[in-house]
């Protein structure tokens, strides 16, 4: 059945000229949580499709069969029929039982906490980026979450400002990030991959630019990532462009908002200790390359409306920006 629905959908998408892949699809689950939700949706989809066909067909048949024709005798003025009324009250009620029972079962199955050995990740939504903390590992990073394949993960979600919603569709349903509340989801990823997602609750000007990635790594890759993240930032070689960039950083307003471990203490913006190892910047909307990094530093609000990272006054010179880019890229 799920296969048939998959082909139906694929057919529909092919007709409309879409290919794929669909990195943010809810229909290609890659975790136990995602699959539970998808199974439930598949069941509901088939009940709905059945009801749809029956009722719409009935409507079309009635319209054709009883359309006005000359000489048709006046219709019999029927007012109702008790048995029919009872029947079509009970029929939807019975169908709904078949939807409600698996629904409640899935609610409780997906609400439970992950096992005690789960990897714990604390997600905090900010306008407009995501902060990830791994309390047991002492890691803080942004926008790109790394988790090991096949191991249970417990995600605790909250917000530092307005309400956001953490959504990585392939790994399961979304949960709102609400200031003052902590929501939990638990999942175990099936397959190594790079899964995209984004904020789902409207959160202000750049809601559309609050994207995220979840990188599901093989265990060895994950351990290596943990090791790198737990280390301090790379120190630029003396006299290098990156070393000059560090000087620029230390004499700019950057340090008021960003943490680089052992260098600066700011906590308003994303932690940059290992920013060079991330694939994207600015809420996972741009690739982490020199060109994007340079224009981002020069004028963030023009790339991301409303960005709290304002234009610097006085503006940095181009050589300073180049040095800063070199420094940030060296922070692997």
């Amino acid at each position: 059945m799920p296969r048939l629905r998959f082909w139906l959908l694929t057919a529909a998408l092919t007709i409309s000229g879409c290919g794929g892949p669909y990195p943010q699809s809810t229909l290609h689950p890659r975790s136990d949580f995602g699959r539970a939700v998808d199974h439930l949706f598949t069941d509901i989809f088939w009940w709905a499709a059945g009801v749809f066909v029956v009722v719409e067909a009935l409507l079309v048949i009635v319209l054709i069969r009883f359309r006005h024709r000359e000489g048709r005798p006046a219709p019999k003025p029927t007012h109702g029929h008790t048995v029919l009324e009872i029947a079509w009250t009970l029929a939807p009620a019975v169908i709904l039982v078949f939807v409600a029972v698996p629904t409640v079962r899935t609610i409780f199955a997906t609400a439970g906490d992950a096992p005690a050995d789960a990897l714990r990740v604390e997600v905090t939504g900010h306008q407009w980026w995501w902060e990830y903390k791994y309390p047991d590992l002492g890691i803080t990073t942004a926008n790109e979450m790394h988790v090991p394949v096949g191991r249970p993960v417990q995600v605790a979600i909250t917000s530092a400002d307005v309400i956001h919603s953490f959504w990585a569709p392939a790994l399961g349903g979304k949960r709102d990030a609400i200031p003052g509340h902590v929501n939990r989801i638990a999942f175990r990823a099936d397959a190594v991959g790079d899964y995209s997602g984004q904020c789902a609750e409207f959160c202000g000007a750049s809601h559309a630019n609050m994207r995220l990635r979840v990188l599901v790594d093989a265990d060895s890759v994950f351990q290596a990532w943990v090791k790198t993240e737990q280390g301090g930032p790379a120190a630029p070689a003396t006299g290098s462009l990156a070393a000059r960039g560090k000087e620029v950083f230390l004499h700019s307003p950057c340090l008021a908002c960003h943490t680089i471990q052992g260098v600066s203490p700011g906590v308003i913006g994303p932690n940059l200790t290992h920013v060079g190892s991330r694939g994207t910047i600015a809420g996972a909307i741009f690739p982490n390359d020199s060109a994007h990094l340079a224009s981002w530093i020069a004028d963030a609000p023009s790339l991301k409306p409303g960005s709290l990272m304002t234009r610097m006054k006085p503006p940095l010179t181009d050589p300073d920006i180049a040095a800063l880019v070199a420094y940030l890229q060296s922070l692997k």
């Binding site: 809810t26 939700v37 509901i44 939807v99 609610i107 349903g173 979304k174 609750e201």
Partner: peptide
Amino acid sequence: GVSHASPPADLQQTDS
């Protein structure tokens, strides 16, 4: 509407 009356399914659908 019935498909998002089911909370787990709705977690994928709401705000989309």
